[in-house]
Design a protein around this nucleic acid. Structure first.
Lengths: 151, 151
DNA sequence: AACTAAATGCAACAATGTTGCATTTAGTTG
DNA sequence: CAACTAAATGCAACATTGTTGCATTTAGTT
């Protein structure tokens, strides 16, 4: 994943640097959205110091090259999991553990674009977040419910 | 709109204050997402001073009561246009003029929930933004294209 | 009119994000 | 491999956004 990303950088004429590799490695390792300062803190813990300005600029670049996205509901960044169709991004955001998974669905995009078209809007791409519980957290919740809420 | 919102406040046991009315009036008047500080600046222009802390707290309250939402793509707040079905919010965000319109569509929500369910995710509500051009900006763009890009 | 919990303002602070410029470095060339 | 150069980074300084505790004010009530 990181290697591919570095290749993409080089291919687009950007330099492959320690900062960019480190930022990409963190995004790759952690499946939760991370703010620029989150990334800085994580790197610091593993003894790698990066200036926050560099992290901001690196994330800008990674987003421009579609190697990362900004996740809005929680305000952090995650790595780009799927090659997006027409710039559409859809995420499942677990309110239990904070994990994020991306998914795509062409039929859904067509349907949503169709609905907005009837409202006079010309959609170029979608951004959606489904907030709820991942399977693990859902199971945990069920167990808790059956343990404590019986009456 | 503002009157209803104030009634809702009173009904829920909250006081109807100058600050709350002013914030709601601004959100009602302006159809673009506004950050807390945007709201402060707009009020200042019409000679009404509000402390930013008050605005933050007022917006928190309005969001809790579903009288406003936070729009994520641009980071601002807008008034709540529709009584949301199961907490689902969908917006059309024009990249031309920055205007925002909310819409709801039950069928779409069912479809999206169904897709995520097959991925093991239990969706509680959706948040989506369709980025593109409103009809006005789309028309303007077409005109510009035919004027300048003919070759 | 007096009362009181709620709401506001203020001050101080914390966190996040931005800009200009000097220094360093990745990738290239000889 | 050494020298070169545009690109990338770090630093400092600043701007904006968001938060907290506490004194003061005010909306709604008695």
């Amino acid at each position: 994943m990181v290697q591919e990303a570095m290749g993409e950088l080089r291919g687009q004429g950007y330099k492959v640097t320690r900062s960019r590799r480190l930022v990409m490695e963190v995004l790759d390792k952690v499946d939760k959205p991370l703010s620029p300062y989150d990334i800085q803190r994580l790197l610091q813990q593993q003894g790698e110091a990066l200036n926050h300005v560099t992290i901001y600029r690196t994330l800008d670049l990674l987003c421009r090259l579609n190697l990362a996205h900004r996740v809005l509901l929680s305000g952090g960044f995650i790595r780009c999991a799927l090659s997006p169709q027409g710039g559409c991004h859809r995420f499942m955001v677990c309110r239990g553990c904070g994990s994020i998974r991306e998914f795509i669905d062409d039929a859904l995009c067509h349907e949503e674009s169709g609905i907005t078209r009837t409202l006079g809007f010309h959609t170029e791409h979608h951004y959606s977040e489904s907030l709820g519980l991942c399977s693990d957290c859902y199971r945990k919740q069920l167990e808790e419910d059956s343990t404590y809420n019986r009456m």
